[in-house]
Amino acid sequence: MVGRIVLLVAFVASVSALPADPVISKLNPEGLRYDYIRDNEGVPHLVDSWIKVSDLVREPRYNPDTDNEYHLFTRSNPLLSQPLVENNADVLRASNFDPSKKTAVLIHGFLGDVVSGFNTVLVPAYLLAGDVNVIMVDWGKGAHWGLNGISSGRSVGRVLRWIANTSGANLADFHILGYSVGAHQAGIAGRTLFGQVGYITAMDPADRWLTSQLFRADDAIYTEVIHTNAGNMGVTQPLGDVDFYPNGGSGMPGCLTALCDHYRSYFYMGESLRTGGFIGRQCATYNDALNGTCDLEGTLEMGGATPKTGQKGIYHLITNGSPPFARG
């Protein structure tokens, strides 16, 4: 009996020694655990970059397969969207979706939604650029926790596969555009489609993210990254086939805050769709891009609706502090 009591006491002591909410993983193991991230209205939110058991308990409440919404815009309905519902072929056929045209897919960032600045800038910009299908992904019900972007990205990939298979559209004609956390989600969606998507643009991919789930160069046939707040809200290192570092990747002209820098990635992309003109100079290394000391002969235009398939490298350019941002 005494032996049993001793064992029970030892067991209780070992359980009591465990933290109440064990940490499973660390998004930013060498940086600060807690940091402020601003939402689309600029309101700061204190975010814990360490993943805990309680986070995994909350995660199942968000199901991207049922909670995500997909809004179709075309030149026939540029202001009022048409909802697309996975596995409802009748809704897809009754919509303005045209499988013979290119399709742009927009994925917002942390705490974003359908009226995020990212969407309000890029939907009209893409429709002005060409007669295309624009699908806005609203994963706002899960965007309170950035890591929901992993499950959402996989779900987006499955929905895009269903749209392509049902309509006869070619995935090579799809362009996925993601911002911040949504940039990594765009990569995950492309990865789910085995890199068959023609073009992915990652706009200032979020720095606080799992290394194993970072945006990758092979997530699409051609991948491009625009860095505007490198080393703060956005990652510093190159991630795509081609990486652009406007103004050295941070400190955008006309901006006084990191959030403004972060936003500029999609403002530059929107202008590139409408009028183009962002010409980058090739760099030997990304440190040269950060320092603006690029002197290689190659040049390449940043952004736009047409993928630069086959191109590789790192590029630097200078922008204006107000629209038009491109210097030509």
Rank of each mutant, 00 (worst) to 15 (best):
R281N: 13
Q196V: 06
G310A: 11
F278N: 05
N287K: 14
Y263A: 09
M269Y: 14
A284M: 11
E224M: 06
A202K: 00
A305V: 12
T306W: 00
M203S: 07
N229C: 15
F278V: 03
R274Y: 03
G248V: 08
P205N: 13
N247Y: 00
W209C: 10
L193N: 06
P253K: 03
L273I: 12
F244Y: 05
R281E: 10
D288W: 10
L214F: 14
D204H: 11
L214H: 14
F278Y: 04
T293E: 14
H227R: 12
A206Q: 05
T285Y: 12
I221L: 09
T228I: 10
R191Y: 11
A284F: 11
G249T: 05
P238Y: 05
L290Y: 01
G249S: 08
S212Y: 09
Q237L: 07
I200R: 02
T309K: 09
T275H: 06
G303F: 06
W209T: 07
M302S: 10
W209A: 03
G234P: 07
G254S: 09
F267H: 11
G310P: 01
R191N: 12
D241E: 04
I226P: 01
T275I: 13
D261Y: 06
Y263K: 13
Y268Q: 07
N291H: 11
G270C: 05
Q185F: 01
G251W: 01
T299M: 12
Y245H: 02
G231L: 15
I200E: 02
T236G: 13
N291E: 15
M252G: 01
G231F: 15
Y245P: 00
R274Q: 14
Q282I: 02
N291K: 13
A220W: 01
L193V: 05
Q282W: 02
L290V: 11
T309H: 04
Y245T: 02
M233F: 13
L256C: 00
Q282G: 11
G292W: 01
V225T: 15
C283V: 00
S272R: 06
M269W: 08
L239V: 10
D261C: 06
G251K: 02
T223I: 04
M233I: 09
G292S: 09
E271I: 04
P307Y: 00
S250N: 13
T309V: 12
N247C: 12
D288L: 09
C255W: 00
T257V: 08
M233P: 01
A206P: 09
R216K: 15
T299I: 14
L193H: 08
I200K: 04
F267I: 03
F194V: 12
L300W: 08
L290A: 12
P238L: 00
L210I: 12
A289D: 07
Y268P: 01
T223L: 03
T293L: 13
G276P: 10
T309M: 04
Y245M: 03
M233G: 13
P253N: 07
F215N: 02
S250G: 10
L214W: 11
D261N: 15
A206F: 08
L296M: 15
Y263L: 05
N287L: 15
G240W: 01
P307S: 04
